[in-house]
């Protein structure tokens, strides 16, 4: 299968006033279309930095990054923003919903920036809200929801524009086990429908949903395990 994400010798340095820290060191990975990949590793190993670069939120300092057959490592913020739109959905540990907007309005946001017509927006937002089983809360504000509900809204927002890739940064980190389980099942379902998923996690349990696990340590890929049933 063709790859959707391919990095070659990615490097990322963080420089503070006195010290230079290597966050990513020669990362070379490939993620195929439709894959579900988990990135694991201890705190500070560079998981989130890698996810940010994959998610086009940040540029690498060196190396190449192919995203959907384009070299994007040197894209400007404007180009990255254009490419992100409709191609990548994000799910965060802390949900990151806008407090001033209702559930419906939060989910609608990516479609607004894609200039989707209003009736189409309404249809699609209601569709995903129904699918996430949160439709009855569409006029509530985020603070009025439980953590699990908030994360379901966040997932609804991530998928409403039908992106090719969903990037999830510890999506269950702030949830209890029952809600966490539900979120993971939703992600699995989306993956089964063909969406590529890249997930950063600390949890071996969550990682079990992935086809493949990439382990990072001190900014380097140490092992890549392909789970038994997904070996070709």
């Amino acid at each position: 299968m063709e790859h959707i994400i391919k990095t070659t010798n990615l490097k990322k340095l963080y420089t503070t006033e006195e010290v230079e820290t290597t966050a990513l060191d020669d990362i070379t990975i490939e993620i195929k279309k439709g894959e579900f990949v988990a990135i694991m590793g201890p705190s500070g190993c560079g998981k989130s930095t890698l996810l940010n670069i994959i998610g086009l939120l940040d540029n690498p300092d060196a190396g190449q990054y192919h995203f959907i057959n384009q070299e994007v490592a040197n894209f400007s913020e404007r180009q990255r923003s254009q490419l992100r739109k409709g191609n990548i959905g994000f799910v965060f540990q802390s949900f990151n919903l806008i407090d001033e907007l209702t559930v419906f309005e939060n989910v609608e946001l990516p479609l607004l920036y894609l200039k989707t017509p209003a009736d189409e927006r309404k249809r699609r937002v209601e569709e995903v809200l129904t699918r996430m089983n949160i439709m009855h809360r569409k006029d509530h504000f985020p603070q009025q929801l439980s953590g699990g509900q908030q994360q379901r809204v966040a997932i609804a927002r991530a998928i409403v524009a039908k992106p090719a890739v969903i990037l999830a940064d510890e999506p269950t980190g702030n949830l209890d086990s029952a809600n966490g389980e539900e979120v993971m099942r939703l992600l699995e379902e989306l993956n089964n429908e063909g969406t590529t998923i890249v997930m950063v996690t600390h949890s071996p349990h969550d990682a079990n949903y992935a086809h493949r696990i990439i382990n990072l340590f001190d900014g380097k890929v140490v092992t890549e395990n392909i789970r038994e049933q997904f070996r070709v």
């Binding site: 923003s81 990151n96 001033e100 946001l109 920036y113 524009a161």
Partner: peptide, 15 residues
């Protein structure tokens, strides 16, 4: 936070 979310939801700087 709101700005970050808008950006990852596809908002460009101009918007």
């Amino acid at each position: 936070k709101e700005i970050g979310i808008r950006k990852i939801s596809g908002a460009g700087r101009g918007r």
